[in-house]
Design a binder for these strands. Sequence first.
DNA 1: CGCGTTTTATAGCGGTCGATCTAAAACTAC
DNA 2: GTAGTTTTAGATCGACCGCTATAAAACGCG
Lengths: 233, 233
Amino acid sequence: MGRPRTFDQPAALAAAMDQFWRRGYEATSVRDLAGAMSITGASLYNAFGDKRSLFRRCLHAYVDTYARKRIAELDASDDPIRGIRAFFDDLVEASLRDRRGCLLVNSAMEVAPWDAEFATLIEQCLLEIEDGFYRALKRLPKGSFQGSRDIRATARLMLSAVIALRVLARAGGDGDRLRSVAKSAIALAERSHTPWTTASPARRRRPRPSPPLDADAPWGSPPPAHSEAQPKI
Amino acid sequence: MGRPRTFDQPAALAAAMDQFWRRGYEATSVRDLAGAMSITGASLYNAFGDKRSLFRRCLHAYVDTYARKRIAELDASDDPIRGIRAFFDDLVEASLRDRRGCLLVNSAMEVAPWDAEFATLIEQCLLEIEDGFYRALKRLPKGSFQGSRDIRATARLMLSAVIALRVLARAGGDGDRLRSVAKSAIALAERSHTPWTTASPARRRRPRPSPPLDADAPWGSPPPAHSEAQPKI
DNA sequence: CGCGTTTTATAGCGGTCGATCTAAAACTAC
DNA sequence: GTAGTTTTAGATCGACCGCTATAAAACGCG
């Protein structure tokens, strides 16, 4: 029934993603998109709906293609430390090769403050990355850590390193700085299982035998919601 | 000679800065600016030149008003640890109150990839913040540190925490996550002068007597330039 | 006062925005 | 082949973009 499409839809979606990735949402016009996708504006609207719907599909495709792949590799690594090191080394290498940064982080800045739907989508993916680091840190040798509350905080600083790496890469930061950030982020995990290290000023030569294990967050479960609802800018 | 201005120029500049801060460069129209500044478009062009020139003045005003103030407070603190703690505590508090993020970081994402002039301006200010952390870390108790190369790397992770805090705040991140990032960033400095801490897997109970002090970067001097020139997206 | 100068306000320039309409083209089902 | 359906291509819509031209209003100065 009806005339079949003559263009490659996945390829067109990838081209659209690249445009949004490089230029951002607002600065990318529908004509830019159609040109990059090698289709006409009418075909674009016919196949993907309006600009916002196309952007949503690009965001989902990005998360599935790029973000979750890195998390899965981190989970699959035998040694969490080596996994974390590979994660950041790859990230630095990719960020130096490709200055587009991360579509999620870019969108967190430009789109999230104005669009609740995309804000939650982005927030969820950032949480997945954070939880990936959390699980990796949790797999470190037993009885070697401060309280698990600090595992969460350390995972969040690692997520911060990822975000900042992407920001700095997009802004043209040199490889020296990016590598330094990655080095320090990796050192976070390496130091984490050094028994004597503690965040409190009081120094302990030995870790406490077994700090009470609290319920750790399972895959994807959000942290306890805080009533910090702020109006969006 | 001639009719004097009837509007408050600094106030108008502050209003323009707020618009760029909240909406970004592209999404802010000249009409938006004129409306927020309570002047007409003709007055805007007459007093500030075109949109890009106005943005440049806003960026410079932001750096002078906000960014350098925090660095100066960090330098002025007696105890560097307390200074770093105050820095991040204030930053978290301000970021939760005001979801605009940081104009510099916002611009690093949106403008820097397309405008070499603004890219260097932003890069210089980020370097000033990094150097501020570097000086604070350098003031920690003597003979307590790993190599000074790690001071630089630690300062860069602290800068990363600042950047990520601003990104997360703008994207609507909850106070719990922001506080965790700040906590871990502060712990970076607190751990830094814990003698037993080391980034290498080999553990040492005592620090080496006195690691060779290399020439530390003076105020504002850029790190060694690397030939990593990449074409801007 | 009137002259010169600068700032105001308004209208409008050519161009681009997201989105849609009309029709011709191209296919399947019968 | 023909009917029915969908995708093409191109033109076009009203709205908004950055910017400017024009002219009236408001001052310092002689």
